[in-house]
């Protein structure tokens, strides 16, 4: 699994991406992945716990945090977008 972070979340986590060979034990959904990431990164935990701020994409599609994950997925976490 490839995990990507963008904008200020990348700064808070301290990296742009990371690779996981397999899903961590007990992780089946985005929400569970986020909870697992929060145990490893205080910056991620703080951002994730700010309700509704962090958006999620799985394989380039916006999703909600209850979608199931596969170890081949690309998961991205990012703040609200500001294009234009």
């Amino acid at each position: 699994m490839r995990i990507l972070y963008f904008a200020w979340l990348r700064h808070r986590v301290g990296r742009a991406s990371e690779e996981l060979e397999t899903l961590p034990e007990g992780v089946r959904t985005v929400r569970e992945l986020a909870a697992w990431l929060a145990t490893r990164s205080p910056g991620f935990r703080e951002a994730w716990e700010s309700d509704g701020v962090i958006q999620i994409a799985v394989n380039h599609e916006h999703v909600t945090d209850d979608v199931p994950l596969d170890s081949s997925d690309e998961v991205a976490f990012f703040p609200p977008v500001t294009g234009g």
Binding site: F6, A7, F78, T82, G83, G84
Partner: peptide, 29 residues
């Protein structure tokens, strides 16, 4: 233009005299 402001994944980092700051999503957009 209205939709790409709110739907397209872009983020903006501004540089000012007092440092860097990420532009926040605007309610007006």
């Amino acid at each position: 233009i209205d939709w790409l402001k709110t739907e397209a994944p872009f983020w903006k980092l501004e540089e000012t005299a007092s440092g860097e700051r990420w532009v926040e999503a605007r309610a007006t957009d």
